[in-house]
Design a protein around this nucleic acid. Structure first.
Length: 272
DNA sequence: GTCCAGGCATGCA
DNA sequence: TGCATGCATGGA
């Protein structure tokens, strides 16, 4: 990957395996908005970005070297060799055609607090409605960092809300989960940074203690917000996929189960 | 009107 | 430990 600094933009050349549609709009992040020119705008880690693919390069608009190094390099997982990962996954016959067809899915390294909240909201819910709830949450309680774009509100901010405040956003029965979660993180009862540093199984057990967090939500949070590439979320779609793996996951998934899962999830939603 | 969505807590065996 | 049931909301 080559990085060029052009006026206020950053141009990335030679980035392999990054499809913006598949990665930013496939159910791992809920806040990116596609613009009329095909680019995506969004906020992560409190920072705004507009990103577009042009002639094989990626243009990061109006950003700085500092923000690129601090946020986006890691967020888009740019130092990981996804081409090699895909080749490893393709040792499995079933996933091979899926990887070819949907090539370019990456795992975004999202903020752990945002990921945890987002996937608590996601339970027994559809992606369109999940996006709406999170959008209202950010517009109401986040800070505007760009015209129409808001930060994800901190646990401290949300810890001041009542169940009714959450329900007013359309969370439904998940409001009580969010209320307790916000307060527990804000007062330090739950330490997300510490959970990040634990071994996978311990981290999962910690998340499972949280009211409103079960195995599926825990695994999504671990994969998308805590850096655990081995976490393998199984939802209603993945249950259908798992019928193709009656003997368990193939060996070539080891250590990258979560990346395999994203390809299979996408395939399932479009084909099952 | 019914069914379903990136499930979970609860009660009961 | 395993299974049935209720749960908020909105789109198909």
């Amino acid at each position: 990957m080559f990085i060029k600094y052009v006026e206020n933009d950053i141009v990335l050349q030679g980035v392999k395996c990054l499809d913006l549609d598949l990665t930013l709009d496939c159910g791992q992040a809920f806040r990116w908005e596609k613009q009329s020119d095909g680019s995506y705008s969004g906020v992560a880690m409190g920072v705004f970005l507009n990103i577009k693919k042009e002639n094989g390069d990626f243009i990061l608009k109006n950003t700085t070297k500092e923000n690129f190094e601090k946020v986006w390099r890691n967020y888009f997982d740019l130092d990981k060799d996804y081409e090699e990962i895909c080749n490893t996954l393709k040792q499995d016959e079933l996933i091979a055609s899926t990887v070819d067809r949907y090539y370019g899915i990456r795992i975004l390294n999202q903020d752990s607090w945002e990921a945890l909240c987002s996937f608590v909201i996601s339970q027994q819910n559809n992606i369109k409605r999940i996006k709406g709830i999170i959008k209202r949450l950010c517009e109401t309680y986040g800070d505007m960092v760009e015209d129409g774009f808001y930060t994800f509100p901190s646990a401290e901010r949300l810890s001041a809300l009542t169940v009714g405040d959450f329900e007013a956003l359309g969370t439904g029965y998940r409001g009580k989960y969010l209320e307790k979660l916000s307060k527990a993180v804000a007062n330090g009862e739950i330490d997300l940074e510490k959970i990040k540093s634990l071994p996978l199984e311990d981290a999962r057990q910690e998340l499972l203690k949280i009211f409103g967090v079960g195995i599926k939500v825990a695994n999504c949070a671990l994969l998308f917000g805590f850096g655990f590439y081995s976490a393998f979320p199984v939802d209603v779609w993945m249950k259908r996929v798992m019928e193709y793996y009656p003997d368990g996951l193939p060996k070539c998934f080891e250590g990258i189960e979560g990346i395999a899962q994203q390809y299979l999830f996408h395939w399932a939603r479009n084909n099952l």
